[in-house]
């Protein structure tokens, strides 16, 4: 059993760390494919990356049901840390969550299991936070859409490998859809539902 005393800390400075993290996420969302850094000092429970932890502390609270994938669910300290620092309810039903945290995308089911919003309220949809191996090395993705001047090139090692194919639901369902934030340690990249990709190379 982990006691509260043993849990890693939250932000060193709650107000300003949340502010700087939000700006990184906002910039990432406004410029899909661009790599942003999370600079705030933050404690991280076991399998959670720094970027993920900072985003959680910045955006989660009592009003945001959070879903964890199996890899994160299995680590008890993660649920406890989230509950203690953010108060967010951890839910088993992916279709009602505001945020989904994915530590190991191998077992990731269909994206349609998440909340995709309604035509009237497309904002009532899940933001998927996906931990990946790298956001600087790996395959090259060419991205287009609002926020991008022409095309943006993202180099990343992303699981699931067919992530962008799966995100085709965003084309079919728009304005309903799912927004994704990729995290690799303290780097983040956002792929909002308007971003389209053409894979370069293999």
């Amino acid at each position: 059993m982990t006691t509260i005393d043993e849990l890693p800390p939250g932000f060193a400075d709650k107000v300003l760390s949340a502010q700087s993290t939000f700006r990184s996420v906002m910039d990432a969302m406004a410029r899909p494919g661009s790599v942003r850094e999370v600079t705030a000092a933050v404690g991280t429970p076991s399998a959670m990356m720094r970027g993920t932890a900072a985003i959680a502390l910045t955006l989660f609270d009592h009003d945001t049901p959070v879903w964890l994938d199996q890899a994160l669910r299995e680590r008890q300290d993660i649920g406890k840390w989230l509950k203690f620092h953010t108060g967010a309810p951890i839910v088993a039903d992916a279709s009602i969550c505001s945020f989904a945290l994915v530590g190991d995308a191998h077992g990731l089911g269909s994206l349609e299991d998440f909340s995709l919003g309604s035509s009237e309220y497309p904002d009532r949809s899940t933001t998927l936070i996906l931990q990946v191996a790298s956001l600087t090395e790996g395959r090259e993705f060419r991205l287009r859409g609002p926020g991008i001047d022409g095309a943006a090139i993202l180099r990343a090692t992303v699981e699931p490998r067919d992530l962008f194919d799966r995100l085709a639901i965003n084309v079919a369902l728009f304005p309903r859809g799912i927004d994704v934030v990729l995290v690799a340690d303290d780097r983040i990249v956002a792929i909002p539902r308007t971003t389209r990709s053409v894979v370069q190379g293999g």
């Binding site: 949340a18 939000f22 969302m29 955006l59 609270d61 904002d123 859809g177």
Partner: peptide
Amino acid sequence: FAYLDEQTKRMIRRAILKAIAIPGYQVP
């Protein structure tokens, strides 16, 4: 800092992110 309490800021920040993700759509 900046008048608003942190819970209010979180709520507004979430709305801003969804607003950016769905250009032109009015997020309540």
